[in-house]
Simulated assay, not measured.
Amino acid sequence: MLTRIILRAVPNLKRWTPIRFNSQQVDPAKMKAFQEKVDKAKVRRAYALGGCLMFIWISTHGILLYKRRSEHRNLNEKLPPISWEEFEQKYLSTGDVKSIIFQPHFETANVYLHSAKEQQMKKSFVDLVHTTPDKFSRPPDVRFYIEASADDVQSLVTAASQKYKTHVDFELDQFPSYRELSFIVGSSLFVLAAITMAK
């Protein structure tokens, strides 16, 4: 009874016929081709994302390494490194050395002293040299170069400390450092998030 009332109120409703989908009408070959296109698009997207991340990873390494090299050249001009033999004779033997930061990439060590004389020398270089190592916000007091591995340099410093009965802190300044590596990882994650949100 209710159906007859609705049909009388809306006479055009009779013309509507339900649409029935038949699963047999879908061509399996077309579905397979469509799925292959989707899979290829996903693969291309993954390759593009991986290539972009690799580019960011390499470029940030290059930028930080270039920055280090520029600081190294600038410091060489302002405070040329001396030889290991001269450094040992003038500084290690007197017990003025507080800490040594060895950079294996440049085969050069930055030395920080705790004597009043060398602290006065340090103040004269603050305005001339602009460099910021990871653990020190001031330029080194003395620098020396040596063609040796990090383990060999550490062994030499340890032997000299025992010989002259002094204590010297020895540290390595590898590339990339923890701070530089965190910058590289952070930049890569930022680019990854930006690409993901853009899609």
Rank of each mutant, 00 (worst) to 15 (best):
R8Y: 04
A41F: 10
I101W: 01
V153W: 00
I5S: 12
S177Q: 04
S161R: 03
D96M: 08
V97A: 04
F87Y: 10
P81K: 13
P11G: 07
G62C: 07
A148N: 03
L64Y: 06
H72E: 12
T132S: 06
I56M: 13
T131Q: 00
Y112L: 04
T132W: 01
N22Y: 12
I58A: 15
T158Y: 02
Q89L: 12
T132I: 10
E180R: 05
Y66C: 05
K30D: 06
A198I: 10
G95L: 02
K123R: 14
A29P: 00
G51Y: 07
D152F: 05
Y47M: 13
D169C: 03
I56Y: 01
P133R: 07
R143L: 08
K14M: 03
F55R: 09
V97T: 15
L189K: 02
S149D: 11
G50Y: 03
A116T: 15
D39K: 14
G62T: 09
A193H: 04
M1I: 11
V43D: 00
T94A: 09
P81Q: 12
I63L: 14
K123P: 04
V111N: 04
L113K: 08
L49P: 02
T166A: 06
H72G: 07
A46Y: 05
Q174W: 04
H61C: 10
E88V: 15
E71Q: 13
C52G: 14
L53D: 04
K42V: 12
G95R: 08
F55A: 15
S93A: 15
C52H: 01
I56H: 03
T94Y: 04
T131P: 00
L75W: 02
H167I: 14
T166H: 11
M54V: 15
S188G: 08
F106I: 07
T17C: 01
E171I: 05
Y47H: 13
D127H: 02
L79I: 11
Q25R: 09
M1A: 14
L2T: 14
N76Q: 11
K98Q: 10
E71M: 11
F175Q: 05
R8T: 14
V153K: 00
P139E: 00
A150N: 07
E36G: 07
T131N: 00
R73F: 08
S124E: 13
G62N: 07
D39Q: 07
H114G: 11
P133A: 05
P140Y: 03
A109Q: 05
S99L: 03
K78T: 09
L181Y: 05
D152P: 00
P140N: 06
R143C: 08
E85P: 02
V185P: 01
L156M: 13
K199Q: 04
D141R: 06
T196D: 01
L75K: 08
L128Y: 05
M31I: 11
E171F: 00
K199N: 08
H105E: 15
L189F: 09
Y164L: 04
H61W: 06
V157Y: 00
R15Q: 14
K199Y: 02
E171Y: 00
E180M: 07
A48C: 11
S155D: 10
R20K: 12
L92K: 10
F125R: 15
D127Q: 06
V97N: 06
L156E: 05
T60H: 01
D173M: 11
A9Q: 12
I101T: 10
G51E: 08
D141M: 11
P176I: 06
E180H: 06
K67G: 12
I184C: 04
L2D: 11
M54W: 03
K123V: 14
D27Y: 03
K42S: 09
T3C: 02
